[in-house]
């Protein structure tokens, strides 16, 4: 009984999402192998080998995997799939892009976004924007699963797995990388930050969003946003928190000028402490907030900045 985890990385560094997926994998079927597919990514394989509980790292280091495009990745994973009882990927845009292709080719249904492993074939996952939790039992055979990383602890370091180089599979040649525009930020990543401060339509402009940056810098927080703020062009798309954006569960989530639509709540209601700042006392966000401040954000944010300074924070 062995499971395979598809590593999340950028060819230079292994992402924490991998460690969390390893934890889920170990609960389904141990030992765990990790597939590192990329180009010039030997360092990533070495990092994966150090995860506790990982028995083997498969390294496919070849040009077609540089961007982990779905079509060559499908072929590669299928080339090794036979040996595994479970194949898992984090529910990132990369994992969600690739794994259903593999599932379809294996004629195996996939469980998306699991938040708990109840038994090796039984999983909990949210449906309806997290308003319901479904417990499903998968049929006999391979388990194909994407993992909501905020629901699992990261596997610890301390492993010493063997690294096995594997051959590239034939690239179907139907897709190619044609450019990217990545958000540059020195701040922590939204999905793994301990503190997240998010802004909504209430911020009113891209310029005003910078008010959040100042506070984020003090708190070493990531900055997020509601869909309305992204749609209005205040911030890039990858800031969106919610049902159809990113799932976050930091120790502290501060929602500023966000009403609290179910689609937004879906992405942040598992945060440990939630703060809402909104001038409308009836905004639904207050129903999930531990601490609510009914005030104009343009008054609150400068005060917050100043008061944090006074308290020597940041």
């Amino acid at each position: 009984m062995t499971s395979l985890v598809i590593a999340e990385h950028d060819n230079a560094a292994l992402k924490d999402a991998t460690h969390k997926t390893v934890t889920a994998a170990a609960a389904i079927s141990a030992p765990v192998h990790v597939l590192v597919a990329g180009a010039d990514c030997a360092a990533v394989a070495e990092a994966a080998a150090k995860i506790a509980g990982v028995e083997k790292v498969l390294l496919a280091d070849a040009a077609p995997y540089a961007r982990q495009l779905a079509e060559p990745m499908e072929a590669l994973i299928l080339s090794v799939a036979d040996g595994y009882d479970a194949i898992l990927a984090p529910a990132t845009t990369t994992g969600k892009n690739i794994l259903p292709r593999v599932a379809a080719r294996l004629d195996t249904p996939q469980v998306s976004d699991i938040i708990a492993v109840i038994a090796p074939d039984t999983f909990e996952h949210p449906i309806y924007a997290g308003n319901a939790i479904e417990t499903v039992q998968a049929p006999a055979g391979k388990k194909l699963v994407t993992v909501r990383t905020t629901a699992f602890q990261a596997a610890a370091e301390g492993g010493n797995a063997a690294i096995e180089k594997i051959a590239a599979a034939a690239d179907p040649g139907t897709s190619s990388f044609a450019g990217e525009e990545l958000s540059q930020s020195a701040r922590p990543e939204l999905t793994s930050a301990k503190i997240v401060i998010s802004g909504g339509r209430g911020l009113g402009s891209a310029e005003n969003f910078k008010l959040l940056d100042k506070i984020a810098d003090r708190l070493h927080a990531a900055v997020g946003a509601s869909r309305a703020a992204v749609d209005a062009g205040y911030v890039p798309n990858d800031y969106q928190v919610g049902q159809t954006g990113k799932m976050v569960a930091p120790d502290l989530y501060i929602a500023v000028g966000i009403s609290g639509a179910i689609q937004h709540l879906a992405g942040m209601k598992d945060s440990r402490v939630i703060v809402a700042i909104n001038k409308d006392p009836d905004a639904p966000i207050f129903q999930v907030a531990d601490y609510g401040l009914t005030e104009d954000l343009f008054k609150v944010l400068p005060e917050l900045d100043e008061e944090l300074g006074k308290r020597g924070i940041g």
């Binding site: 417990t135 209601k269 703060v275 531990d290």
Partner: peptide, 29 residues
């Protein structure tokens, strides 16, 4: 092909409180 064993409510968050000022908020946090 899946068997749905159950569909349940997500855990509810306990009720929160309103704070009156930024400094009260920071005290709590």
């Amino acid at each position: 092909r899946f068997k749905v064993l159950k569909v349940s409510e997500p855990p509810k968050r306990g009720g929160g409180v309103k704070v009156a000022s930024v400094s009260e908020l920071l005290d709590k946090l």
